[in-house]
């Protein structure tokens, strides 16, 4: 393929500044989205695991709604639909909000599974020590269940970062948006794809390595 033969590093080099700008936008939306998704997941996951009436059902409906519709449709719905309700958001807000709502649903499930995996006898031991429900959660379920859930939540966080690429379709100038723009002017497909791949794989593989590291470090003793 002659395309490979004519690979021009200078194309990547010349667009380095623009790509870096896109990367910063990706990280900005991604980090805000991940942090908030963790918060949503922790709170709703706890509500679900402890079967708090009404709130549990509401959280379950939210999770099912988000898991069974494409995130891109959710982004469009927020982008076009919310203004109809009189809620006017700028693109950045729609960006982090949409990935938070999506990531929050998946993290709710991650944390619920983690909390539910905490053996019954441990929380009973907590109550025996005179813990209130909140204390039991904070000192028993959260540390143990959170540990169990951590690797799967990082997987969700990885998906949140990958999903920021979809924000190109509402005009948020993240990494894919920038690369797509450059390629539609220069037609240097391979160069732009290589640059994109390096950026995304660097983020994703770093986080995957973190999962493996944590899985080893935080592995619960056999007794559990």
């Amino acid at each position: 393929m002659h395309v490979l033969a004519s690979f021009e590093w200078s194309v990547i080099w010349d667009s380095q500044g623009a790509l870096w700008g896109g990367f910063k936008h990706t990280m900005k939306a991604g980090v805000v989205g991940i942090v908030l998704a963790y918060l949503v997941g922790l709170v709703l996951g706890a509500l679900r695991a402890h079967r708090i009436p009404i709130l549990n059902q509401l959280a379950a409906s939210y999770v099912e709604l988000i898991r069974n519709t494409p995130i891109l449709v959710q982004i469009f719905f927020l982008y076009y639909g919310l203004p109809v309700l009189g809620i006017h958001l700028d693109v950045f807000t729609v960006a982090w909000l949409s990935i938070t709502i999506w990531g929050g649903a998946f993290m709710t499930e991650n944390f619920r599974a983690g909390f539910e995996a905490v053996p019954q006898r441990l929380s009973e031991a907590g109550y025996a020590l005179g813990f209130t429900r909140l204390q039991e959660f904070l000192y028993v379920t959260l540390p143990i269940g959170g540990r169990i859930a951590l690797p799967s939540t990082i997987n969700s966080a990885i998906s949140v970062i990958k999903n920021t690429s979809l924000l190109l379709l509402i005009g948020y100038p993240e990494l894919t948006y920038v690369a797509n723009n450059i390629q539609s002017n220069t037609f240097r497909t391979f160069e732009m794809f290589t640059a994109l791949a390096v950026y995304y794989l660097a983020i994703v593989w770093t986080l995957s390595a973190l999962i493996r590291f944590l899985e080893r470090r935080l592995a619960l003793p056999e007794a559990f």
Partner: peptide
């Protein structure tokens, strides 16, 4: 596995679509 799982699908879609005929 790691490459195609690691890349956002949108990036893969655009890449394949951008490829010239071969």
């Amino acid at each position: 596995v790691e490459v195609w799982r690691g890349l956002p699908i949108l990036v893969t879609v655009l890449f394949i679509f951008w490829l010239p005929a071969f």
